[in-house]
Design a protein around this nucleic acid. Structure first.
Lengths: 241, 241
DNA sequence: TTATAAAATTCGACTATTCAAATAATAAAA
DNA sequence: TTTTATTATTTGAATAGTCGAATTTTATAA
């Protein structure tokens, strides 16, 4: 009883009148990684999988799994792997929300390029304040998607529709609009800038090269270009037909 | 030679094409504290003085002094105390610049109250990106003062004029405008909100009570109020006469 | 100048996080 | 089912930062 009370006091003193659960930078990054893996459903979430996302040592992951389980943010079962608890999911979604809102801010308000915003948002997402995300959301006029086309979770945790059909998975001959990108690395985004592809760009999928899966496409009605299969898998589209 | 080269590479890889010196959160907070003490000139900057600002243990300060001296951000001499080097001063001013710009953003764009912005800016000031502060500055239309009336360092490190005359130091009978506040605690700022005092508010200093230095003032032409000497010392003014 | 108080410094310890290497457990292949 | 490979876990160590207590240095007062 005393412990709970004391803990609450701690939160309150740090975050004013709003009840706010505090996680370390590291904890937040693990939550985000686990959330990301949970989105790629099907697979069970193992320590190694997490260590690959975070590019760190599995030994570190095992430690943190224990810590997050103690905090009741995840459940860990050797059979089932790692699962976010309701609270863990809420917290992870909030981090994603903050990340994507900041990305919109950086691009639209501060004029950063597409390929520059991810790393900065990676820092901004950890700023702790109970109303900051909601105020930013309002200031940005409640955007539904971030500049990479990823849905921005609403304040209540609900998600706008997300796109999952890749350009590479379409039939040759079809047309589509770019709705989102899977890879947000600056290498990929700079390539897209060079090709003049952005969210909303119309792409005609002309033919697929059987040899290596390369795609012959036309971007915004311009002359044909050939891109790799890997490239096509990282473009998510809204089909036209 | 190799070491220097390697170190540069490290910076480059983290911060893109811009050369950018990286400090830890803790180092930045020490720099800021030292900068603040250096502003209150006259006094030599001792480990204890720093520990008072940061509310930590002098033993920790001694360790960090060594670290910052190794990084050539400060010079330490037992006789002269701590002094910021040219580089240390530049870095400290940049942190202050970021802090004050973010405060303007939080108040003007996100609608936070006067007394809420300091703590959030305390986190935002550590976001590392070579062009972020300048872009934010431009977005905010190059403000000269933050919401507490403190001058915002320009990109080149130059400072707009700062105010140093306190309300308490005026002669009874004079009038003035509030130009800045010395204390930025939310307790003080909330009191000011209650009294309806903000930057720019006109105050008539009617009389001083000899007993305890209390000030009888009229705020914006309204009925008389009495405030403490401590209060008067924390209001910085632009005299009218 | 000597005694005393204050400040600076060293020391060992503690937390959070990370890692590499060794070991244990589990899954896959033979 | 036994062997082999993969994965998970433990262990011990490293780093950055912090602290309290002990010690040394410096400044102040008697």
């Amino acid at each position: 009883m005393w412990l709970i009370f004391k803990t609450r006091l701690f939160y309150l003193s740090l975050y004013g009148t709003h009840f706010y659960r505090m996680h370390t930078l590291s904890e937040e990054n693990y939550l985000k990684a686990i959330y990301r893996l949970a989105q790629e459903k099907g697979q069970k979430i193992t320590p190694t999988a997490i260590s690959e996302v975070l590019e760190n040592n599995p030994a570190s992951v095992v430690d943190m799994i224990r810590k997050l389980a103690d905090k009741q943010l995840i459940d860990y079962d050797k059979k089932k792997g790692v699962r976010l608890t309701d609270q863990g999911l809420k917290d992870a979604i909030l981090i994603v929300r903050r990340h994507r809102l900041w990305e919109v801010f950086l691009l639209e308000k501060l004029g950063f390029r597409w390929d520059e915003i991810h790393d900065i948002a990676e820092e901004l997402e950890h700023i702790k304040d109970a109303t900051l995300a909601d105020r930013l959301d309002k200031f940005l006029n409640f955007p539904e998607y971030d500049p990479h086309g990823d849905p921005i979770p609403k304040a209540n945790g609900k998600m706008p529709k997300s796109y999952s059909v890749s350009l590479a998975s379409l039939k040759a001959g079809s047309s589509c609009h770019v709705a989102a990108v899977r890879d947000t690395s600056s290498a990929f985004l700079q390539y897209l800038l060079k090709l003049d592809i952005g969210i909303g760009t119309t792409i005609q999928f002309i033919e697929k090269i059987p040899f290596d899966g390369s795609l012959v496409i036309s971007i915004g009605g311009k002359e044909k270009t050939t891109v790799s299969q890997k490239f096509g898998e990282n473009i998510l589209v809204d089909g036209i037909g």
